[in-house]
Structure formats: structure tokens, C-alpha cells
């Protein structure tokens, strides 16, 4: 589904990714871990098409198509979704209008009929339950005045409504207390399916207790320095990132 080869990227001439390789197949959940500044969020943003990054080498393809050549909205319509670490507040933009506009844009691109208000409400009511959100959230402006936990739940709600093929969760656990974390993780787990792949970017192994990955990769210095199964995350928890960096240097 996603195939990244030797990806190199920089911000303001500062190299962040230095030849990153990653392959993700349908149904797989990959965790990407790494110390602060290792390039985890940069990778997530580059895949979603955020401006401000310069890709200087390598390729990234999504279902055989050159991902990096597509506008952000085209990537979303093809089934890529990024849950942001810091969801953006949109004052004056109603959450329901936002969700419906996004869903219908995605449905139109996939050749599905557009949903009217009734059809949309039916779908969104069902998905609200996944993240234990109240219908009142729909009447508010997007993320405006939301607590940290509410913002993260709103991200997962969007994911549940848009039904992406590949979801990238960027530090979805940051700023969440244990109860909020559980709600968010339950929502994500409910969306796991054989057709859907996920990349979970996280600094801490804590989230991986709730969202259990099939593969764990460690990103350091802009490359993946170690890949393994779940036990790698536990090993990191015990030994810290320093252990790998030392090994890498040796």
C-alpha cells in the first residue's frame, strides 16, 4: 500500500530525513518510535502533503502512485489520513459542516453518491459512539475551545467518518490522561480492519499497550535504525533510545 524508498527531506536546509525506507501493507499496524527530533512528525507531515518541507531524494508511493506529486486533498481522497499531534482550531467553521464537506469531497472522488443531511447524520451518530463523543460536538466550531482530549477524539471521529485506507496517527497519545488515551485507543482499534493500514507515531510505548502494532520501527537521525515486532517497543521502554543510538554509532 505504502512504499517509501530512500526518502530524504529537509526543512530550511536542515536535513531531517536521510534515506528512510518503509513498506506498509493493507491490514498492518506499524509503530514508529524514536527520540524527539528524530524526524517522526516530519515523516507524517510529508506523507500528508504539508508545505514547508523539501524532499531532496527518494520516493514515496501509495498504491503504486507517486504520493509526493499529489496535493494534500488528493492524498486524502485516495485514502490517506493524518491525525495531527496538534489539531488546528478553526474558529467560525462548524464541526458538522467541516465533516460533511470533507466526507462528500472524499465520496465524490471515490465515485460514491453524496450524502444529504439525513444520511450524513445517520452515519455520524453511529461514529460518534466510537469515540464517546456527544452530538453537541457537531454544533461547535472545529476544535475551537476543545480540551486536548476532545481535540484528539475529534481527530479519530474524522478518521471514522472518512474511512481511510491508511491512517497515520501522529503522537495521538501526547497530552492525554489515561482515561482519554483509552477512549482514543478503543476508537482506533475499532477501525482496524484487513483493508486498512495504520502508522502509529509515538514517543512512548504506553500507547502501544492499547494499540498493539504488528511492526515496530525505530527512527533515529532521519532513518529507520531498527525494525522488529512488539517486543522491540518493550525493549526500548526498558533501555531507552540511547541504547540504539550507541549501537548505531558503533
Amino acid at each position: 500500500m505504502l512504499n517509501i524508498e530512500k526518502l530524504q527531506a529537509s526543512v530550511d536546509d536542515k536535513p531531517i530525513l536521510n534515506g528512510l525506507d518503509l513498506k506498509v501493507n493493507a491490514g498492518e499496524v506499524h509503530a514508529i518510535m524514536g527520540p524527539n527530533g528524530s524526524g517522526k512528525s516530519t515523516l507524517a507531515h510529508i506523507l500528508a502533503g504539508r508545505e514547508g518541507y523539501k524532499v531532496s531524494g527518494g520516493t514515496a508511493s501509495f498504491e503504486g502512485e507517486d504520493l509526493l506529486a499529489l496535493a494534500p486533498e488528493e492524498r486524502a481522497r485516495r485514502g490517506l489520513f493524518l491525525a495531527l499531534q496538534y489539531p488546528v482550531e478553526l474558529p467560525g467553521v462548524n464541526n458538522m459542516v467541516f465533516l460533511k464537506t470533507a466526507l462528500n469531497a472524499v465520496r465524490a472522488a471515490r465515485g460514491k453518491p453524496l450524502l444529504d443531511a439525513v444520511g450524513f447524520m445517520k452515519l455520524v451518530r453511529e461514529r460518534l459512539g466510537l469515540v464517546q463523543m456527544d452530538e453537541r460536538f457537531l454544533k461547535r466550531n472545529v476544535n475551537a475551545g476543545f480540551s486536548g482530549g476532545e481535540k484528539k477524539r475529534n481527530e479519530i471521529l474524522q478518521m471514522a467518518v472518512l474511512e481511510p485506507k491508511l491512517a497515520i496517527l501522529d503522537e495521538t497519545d501526547s497530552g492525554l490522561d489515561i482515561d482519554a488515551l483509552r477512549v482514543v485507543a478503543d476508537g482506533v482499534n475499532a477501525l482496524r480492519s484487513p483493508e486498512r493500514a495504520m502508522i502509529v507515531v509515538t514517543h512512548y510505548q504506553r500507547l502501544l499497550d492499547y494499540i498493539q502494532p504488528d511492526f515496530v520501527h525505530v527512527l533515529a537521525g532521519g532513518r529507520i535504525v531498527r525494525s522488529g515486532d512488539r517486543t522491540l517497543a518493550l525493549e526500548l521502554e526498558e533501555k531507552g533510545y540511547g541504547w540504539l543510538e550507541q549501537e548505531d554509532a558503533a
Binding site: A48, G49, R50, E51, A71, P72, E73, R75, A76, R77, F81, L82, L84, P87, V88, L90, P91, G92, V93, V97, F98, T101, A102, L103, A105, V106, A109, N141, Q158, L162
Partner: peptide
């Protein structure tokens, strides 16, 4: 730009994203 990207990353065309943000601004 962060707001524009957020909307576009949800599949909303750039024109529509700008329209929503402008209407949001005017909405107050």
C-alpha cells in the same frame, strides 16, 4: 496556512477550504 492544510488534509479542495475559512471569519 496551518488551517488551510488541515482542511485540505481532509479531502477538501483548496478553493473550498478558503471559502470555509473566509465564511468562518465572517461568521462571527
Amino acid at each position: 496556512p496551518a488551517q488551510l492544510f488541515y482542511l485540505r488534509s481532509r479531502g477538501i479542495a483548496a478553493t473550498e477550504a478558503r471559502r470555509l475559512l473566509c465564511l468562518g471569519f465572517a461568521g462571527e
